[in-house]
């Protein structure tokens, strides 16, 4: 079963020449368990998509289903969301804010436990206006969890957190998915973060879906040998289709056993090799390749 399903969703803002297509015929299925990463450069349509799921923005075309039913107030009540920068009533304390959200949701929430979970116990009775960005981020995550949701939408949840805080939130996200069985839709610019926690990812660019699948499958390409050589042309000529320019060097698709022979043949042809290293496929490289391709 899917937690969130988008069918052929489109959304534009503005009129005439200033019209911007935020999303174009987007279809996605987010499973009811696990972490689903949403990636995309600025302006790709991620925030519009998240706001649309939460009912803040209406699609021009297409439909959204939540937990197998058309999206509406009853199904949206099963979502928890942290969208964009966390915003609060500055005149309330963290405890009051969470209690208020729980009462609006019609649930009895264990606010002290929730505050402990995001490490805000000591600041529980401070007004939110005095919170640092990291504390606001933690309170935003607590707000998303206050009504015991079945699916959580987290938009840049580690923004403003220190490295320890980022690791804690990453663990929290994994726990939510693995131990509590929630669906987590995680939007982030931090590709490394998404790669570490997400089971599946979707990459958006200019409102379109450019790649989607399991992280392992998307990065399923072979490792490649990267060479920093004095002259690239002779290497490319010698190796043909298995070599290409990558950055300031040459990448070679080659088996590990073949490397000593390759290096000695380059040296024998007086091609200086300054550095040779194995490069594992990562999400950043994949992301850049996908978003650059579609820009072109």
């Amino acid at each position: 079963m899917t937690a969130i399903e988008l069918n052929d969703v489109s959304k534009s803002f503005g009129f005439g020449a200033t019209r911007i297509h935020a999303l174009e015929a987007l279809s996605l299925s987010i499973p009811s368990q696990g972490v689903y990463g949403l990636l995309g450069p600025n302006g790709a349509g991620k925030s519009t998509l998240l706001r649309m799921i939460c009912g803040l923005v209406r699609p021009d075309r297409g439909g959204i289903s939540l937990f197998g039913e058309p999206a509406g107030p009853p199904t949206r009540a099963r979502l928890g969301a942290l969208i964009d920068a966390p915003t609060f009533y500055p005149f309330m304390t963290a405890r009051e804010f969470l209690a208020m959200l729980a009462s609006v949701s019609g649930v009895r929430a264990d606010v002290p436990a929730l505050l402990r979970r995001v490490d805000l116990t000591r600041a529980a009775d401070q007004k939110v206006s005095g919170f640092s960005l990291g504390m606001r981020q933690r309170l935003g995550i607590a707000a998303a969890l206050v009504a015991r949701p079945a699916a959580v939408i987290l938009d840049e949840p580690t923004n403003g957190l220190d490295p320890d805080g980022m690791i804690e939130i990453r663990h929290l996200i994994r726990r939510l998915a693995q131990e509590e069985g929630l669906a987590v839709l995680l939007s982030s610019h931090l590709l490394d973060e998404v790669e570490k926690v997400a089971d599946r990812v979707a990459i958006l660019n200019r409102g379109r879906l450019v790649a989607e699948g399991k992280v392992g499958d998307l990065l399923g390409g072979e490792e490649r040998l990267w060479l920093d050589v004095a002259q690239q042309e002779p290497v490319l000529e010698k190796l043909g289709e298995v070599a290409w320019v990558e950055g300031k060097g040459v990448a070679v698709r080659i088996a590990r056993a073949e490397v000593p022979r390759l290096l000695s043949s380059l040296l024998s042809e007086n091609i200086s090799v300054y550095e040779a290293k194995w490069i594992r496929p990562d999400l950043e490289t994949f992301f850049l390749a996908e978003t650059r391709d579609s820009k072109a």
Binding site: L56, P73, R76, A81, D84, Y89, V104
Partner: peptide
């Protein structure tokens, strides 16, 4: 205006209908 001013509709709208 309070929920426009502090941009807090994002916390409320998913929880109940706009009519509420």
């Amino acid at each position: 205006v309070v929920d426009y001013r502090f941009a807090t509709w994002r916390h409320l709208i998913p929880r109940r209908s706009r009519l509420a």
